[in-house]
Design a protein around this nucleic acid. Sequence first.
DNA 1: AAATAACCGGGGGCTCTCTCCCCGTTTGGA
DNA 2: TCCAAACGGGGAGAGAGCCCCCGGTTATTT
Lengths: 221, 221
Amino acid sequence: MTSTPDTAPVRRVPRPRADALRNRERIVTAAREMFVEFGPQVPYDEVARRAGVGNATLYRNFPERLDLVREVVLSLMARVTELAERATEEEADTFAALRRFTHAAADERIGALCPMLDGAFDKDHPDLTVERERLEEAVQGLVERAQRAGRLRADVGVGDLMVAVSQLTRPLPGTACVNFDQFVHRHLQLFLDGLEAPARSELPGTAATLEDLRRDSCRRS
Amino acid sequence: MTSTPDTAPVRRVPRPRADALRNRERIVTAAREMFVEFGPQVPYDEVARRAGVGNATLYRNFPERLDLVREVVLSLMARVTELAERATEEEADTFAALRRFTHAAADERIGALCPMLDGAFDKDHPDLTVERERLEEAVQGLVERAQRAGRLRADVGVGDLMVAVSQLTRPLPGTACVNFDQFVHRHLQLFLDGLEAPARSELPGTAATLEDLRRDSCRRS
DNA sequence: AAATAACCGGGGGCTCTCTCCCCGTTTGGA
DNA sequence: TCCAAACGGGGAGAGAGCCCCCGGTTATTT
């Protein structure tokens, strides 16, 4: 039906319908929650049900599972970046800022990112690279500021912080321990105490950036 | 070998064949490795292949998956108990003993126990109870000794140590990061620095024993 | 407000994986 | 040497998750 006249290719999608946008957002939110609880292998249909949409809607928005995973990761990274920036701005004490960021990141269930690194997850996707740089910049700022102030030991890097926080906050699959969160914050607190200067021991290995993690973590067995 | 038939008539299995015992051991070893790498849902046939036996042999030894999981858990707990006892005996410095035990437990991949707590795992099986008590006793000794010596902060318990070590050493599913081990030991070292007395901050919540974990961790969502 | 086109929802077939049994062959023990 | 217990691999059966189809609904346009 003579859809596109030669002049202007008639805005195909000038504005995706409002409910479509809303549904997409609800899907990402639901997926984030489900991934945290059950891992990224959770059935598509379950995600759709949690989101309150039909499964077809999910497939229309994210034909490939990896698309959905990437979207969730991006969403989480953006939130965590925001947390880092807020902590930097609002906390005068440099180490207090680090503490605040760490506990806040834990509440965002950043540990749920771990299982998404497996398989054929495209770590070099443009969107991811951009978001990762923003995240690293924000946290790097937090770390360096505390190190310059002599509050944070000098032999640790952004990678150490992020990996350890991720590991400590990973949910136990299948079980929903009622006071697991309490534990998490205890252990983060202990870990932070270990991060504080002056150092109480010598660390093996070397400090790592997020870039190091991206490069080294994709060796298949 | 004087099968002592006087009391018990006709020992059905006076001695399981030597190769049968060997195979059973190889199966448990293979299962432990596979569970660490892929989680306890790994296909039976894969475990059998890694163990170098036919799948039927596996089913003959462990008709239920939970039997196999329990055997692996028992095996790991026994090894870790041994580590705790060795560290207690051989290290004069109380905190050094704790450090040594922690790093050794990490090398045993104690974090792989986590995914086995999900679902209908029978936490009250007699064998498990016995082994858990032995483990708790050994680690409790390590902890209390360091606390009495004033080297370990007083507001932590066995549960804190075990859970944190487990979390920090949990493998990233799917990926075999080449220098992940290096990271693990760095983070354990940092965590241990946080455990050392005097305490640098106040902890939320309360110290927990292994018994607390067993009770509280089975609340389904 | 009516027309229209995009969007939504859920039911069902299809495929793929894992489980578990069957039976001929091998191997350890007396 | 004899025998019985244990072994191994192939394959049928079952279950779960994936993805498509099509009638109904809702937001936008004139």
